[in-house]
Amino acid sequence: MPAPQRTSLAAIRRAAAELLEADGPGGLTMQAVAERVGVRAPSLYKHVPGRDALVRLVAEDAATELGVALEAAAPPGTTPRDGLEAAASALRRFAHARPAAFRLVLSPGAEGTRPDPEVSRRAAATVLRLAAELAGPQQALPAARTITAWASGFVAMELADAFRMGGDVDAAFTFGVDALARALAQPSQT
């Protein structure tokens, strides 16, 4: 009779996500996760083939969580401008709550650590929909990339405490949303 498992993939994923936030990517090791879930490191290999796969699972979970938050914030039927603000604000909230996961999802890593492309597509679905509504279906992808670059760049600077010239950062965020919405809007929407 085989010995009962002392941990689960779900527990490993939770522990890894917690370690990522507590210690950053460097602290996300098989040994650290094993200690957190109360097993020896070799036991983790029954669930995860190695560190890259572990990081990939954490990235996929974070991307999925972010995608759900974006969809909840800007469901179909929301006006494109309001949806853009709601989705950008959801990204901002996610980044403030889980800064290491935000960086993991929005920065390229080694090939083996990146989320599955289908997970990434689902996570980006709301932004792509809003981009198509604003800029038209032919320009949806470049518009979505522009939205993502602006929002993630703004939030990354905010997390790094790089806005040091005074002023209202929340007002600057709203200004950016308005400017993006106007810049991306199809002529029929202006």
Rank of each mutant, 00 (worst) to 15 (best):
L106F: 15
S107R: 15
S107H: 15
P108A: 13
G109C: 08
G109M: 09
G109I: 04
G109D: 09
A110F: 05
E111N: 09
G112K: 07
T113L: 02
T113M: 15
T113V: 10
T113W: 06
T113C: 13
T113Q: 15
R114C: 08
R114Y: 03
R114H: 05
R114V: 10
R114G: 06
R114I: 07
R114P: 04
R114N: 12
R114T: 10
P115L: 09
P115C: 09
P115I: 08
D116E: 14
D116A: 14
D116W: 06
P117I: 07
P117N: 09
E118G: 09
E118I: 06
E118H: 10
V119M: 03
S120H: 04
S120F: 02
S120I: 07
R121W: 00
R122A: 10
R122D: 10
A124N: 11
A125C: 03
A125E: 11
T126Q: 05
T126K: 04
T126V: 06
T126H: 06
V127K: 09
L128A: 10
L128F: 07
R129W: 02
R129I: 00
R129F: 00
L130G: 09
L130S: 07
L130N: 07
A131Y: 03
A131H: 01
A131I: 00
A131M: 03
A131R: 04
A132E: 11
E133L: 14
E133H: 04
L134G: 05
L134Y: 07
L134D: 07
G136N: 12
G136Q: 13
P137R: 15
P137V: 14
Q138A: 15
Q138P: 01
Q139K: 13
Q139D: 15
Q139C: 09
A140L: 01
L141I: 11
P142L: 04
P142E: 05
A143S: 12
A143T: 06
A144Y: 06
R145Y: 05
T146N: 07
T146F: 04
I147F: 00
T148N: 07
T148D: 09
A149D: 00
A149C: 03
A149T: 09
W150G: 02
W150I: 01
G153S: 05
G153D: 02
G153H: 05
F154M: 05
V155F: 04
V155E: 10
A156T: 13
A156S: 15
A156Q: 11
A156R: 13
M157R: 14
L159A: 12
L159M: 11
L159F: 06
D161M: 14
D161R: 15
D161Y: 12
D161E: 15
A162S: 13
A162P: 02
A162Y: 00
F163M: 11
R164F: 01
R164C: 03
R164Y: 03
R164I: 06
R164K: 12
M165N: 14
G166S: 09
G166D: 10
G166Q: 13
G167W: 02
D168W: 12
D168E: 14
D168Y: 11
V169F: 02
D170C: 02
D170G: 13
D170S: 12
D170K: 13
D170L: 04
A171W: 02
A171H: 09
A171Y: 04
A171L: 11
A171N: 08
A172K: 11
F173P: 00
T174P: 03
T174F: 03
T174E: 12
F175R: 13
F175D: 15
F175V: 05
F175L: 12
F175K: 08
